[in-house]
Design a protein around this nucleic acid. Structure first.
Length: 198
DNA sequence: TTCCAGATCTTA
DNA sequence: AAGATCTGGAAC
């Protein structure tokens, strides 16, 4: 397993979102295998914060690829994204981390979530923020520093013995038709099964 | 098992 | 005024 560097995130969010499936996301003492992501793009995607939020545009203008974009959703849940920047085209975007298969720090996750069953710990973007203890104070954190400088970030998969499925994104009203949700086929840890998200 | 409303607050 | 969610309870 090798840690993903900034170069990994220097391409379209759709590419990064697909390639992050199967990777391990480590956050301090907790970790899990990424089993679900969504891509949001600067152009042609009205659901992306870059379309409607000046503060998001300002953020990506000054933060490098691989930075954490964390924001409060519905006034309650912290959602974690990673900044992507295509260095060739200049296009920018985010990958929303939507679900993990928990692999480390299970006791801490169970305590924060107040749940015992593994499937209820990280099967949704709001749950991930809660289980891993991620909040607005982590907004802007660089996830691509070397391990000795930052233990949080993404690692390449142990094996590539899995299939990737695509589906429409969850919980949005604009650009619903885009198939920019990526899932590890057959995983029990996804938020909503393929096709059931409407 | 599915549906629905409520919680709660930042951004625009 | 709307929103990249989750939960518990009611109904089926």
């Amino acid at each position: 397993m090798e840690k993903l560097t900034a170069a990994f995130f220097e391409r379209d969010a759709t590419v990064c979102a697909r390639k992050l499936i199967g990777c391990t996301f480590r956050w301090k003492s907790t970790a899990g295998i990424v089993v679900e992501t969504e891509a949001y793009a600067e152009h042609g995607d009205e659901a992306c914060h870059l379309f409607s939020r000046p503060s998001a545009r300002e953020f990506v203008a000054k933060k490098p690829a691989g930075s954490a974009y964390v924001y409060l959703n519905y006034g309650i849940y912290w959602l974690v994204n990673v900044v992507c920047k295509n260095t060739v085209t200049g296009d920018r975007g985010f990958v929303l981390i939507r679900a993990l298969e928990p692999t480390a720090g299970l006791a801490a996750m169970k305590k924060r979530r107040n749940k015992e069953r593994l499937r209820e710990l990280c099967s949704g973007p709001g749950k991930i923020g809660q289980a891993l203890g991620i909040t607005g104070k982590d907004h802007g954190k660089n996830l691509t520093l070397p391990p000795e400088g930052n233990q949080s970030g993404f690692w390449t998969p142990d094996s590539d013995d899995f299939e990737i499925e695509t589906d429409r994104r969850i919980g949005i009203s604009k650009a619903k038709e885009l198939e920019w949700r990526f899932l590890m086929a057959g995983s029990e840890h996804v938020s909503i099964a393929v096709g059931k998200g409407r």
